[in-house]
Amino acid sequence: MTDRDLPSEVEKLIDRVQYEEAGEFPVERGYVYTSCSSVENGNPLFWDDDVAQQITNGPIAPPTMISVWFRPHQWSPGRTEPAVPLQSHFDLKRIFELPEAVMTDNTIVFHEPVRPGDCLRTRQILRSVSEPKTTKLGTGRFWVIEVEYLNQNDELVGVESYTGFGYRRGES
C-alpha cells in the first residue's frame, strides 16, 4: 500500500512510534458504571464483585472502553486549545494539504484486561500511506494508523487500527 514516491517527511514516520503519552487519570469504576448504564449492559463482571473475582480475578473495565481512558478533558488548567486525539491523522492531513478526512474502518484487538486503578499509556504508529486515490468523496490518500495501549506493567492491553481517507473535494 505504501507509495515509493511518498515525501521523505512521511516515509520517515512509517513504523515509527510517535506521541507516546499517559492517560490523564487512572482507570476508574465511575466511568465503567456510566458506560454500562448508557447501553444497559448488565454483565455481572462489571456490577458484581464476587462474579468478577471468580471469572476475571477482580473487577475489570469493559474491553470496548479502551479508548475512553485517553480522551482528553474538554478543558484543563493551562490548555488554550482543545487537545486533538489521534494527532498522527491530523499531521497527515496537514502534510498532504488535504482539508477533509473520514475514518473508513476501525479494528480493535483486545489483550490484557483493563482494571480499575490501571495507569495506561498510548502510542501511535503510522503503518502505511497509499498512493493518491479518487473516490466519490474526492481525491486523496488512505492511511493506516495503529494506536497501542499499554498498562503500568508494560503489558499490551489493546491495539486499535484506524483506516483514514484524507481528501480534497471536487476533484473526482
Partner: peptide, 25 residues
C-alpha cells in the same frame, strides 16, 4: 462499540471474552 459488546455478552454470558472487533460505518 459498547452496544455491540453488550449485545454479544448478553448472548455469551460473562465467560465470553472479546478478542477482536472490526467496524464499518
Amino acid at each position: 462499540a459498547a452496544w455491540f459488546e453488550r449485545f454479544l455478552t448478553d448472548w455469551s454470558g460473562p465467560t465470553g471474552r472479546l478478542g477482536r472487533m472490526k467496524f464499518r460505518m
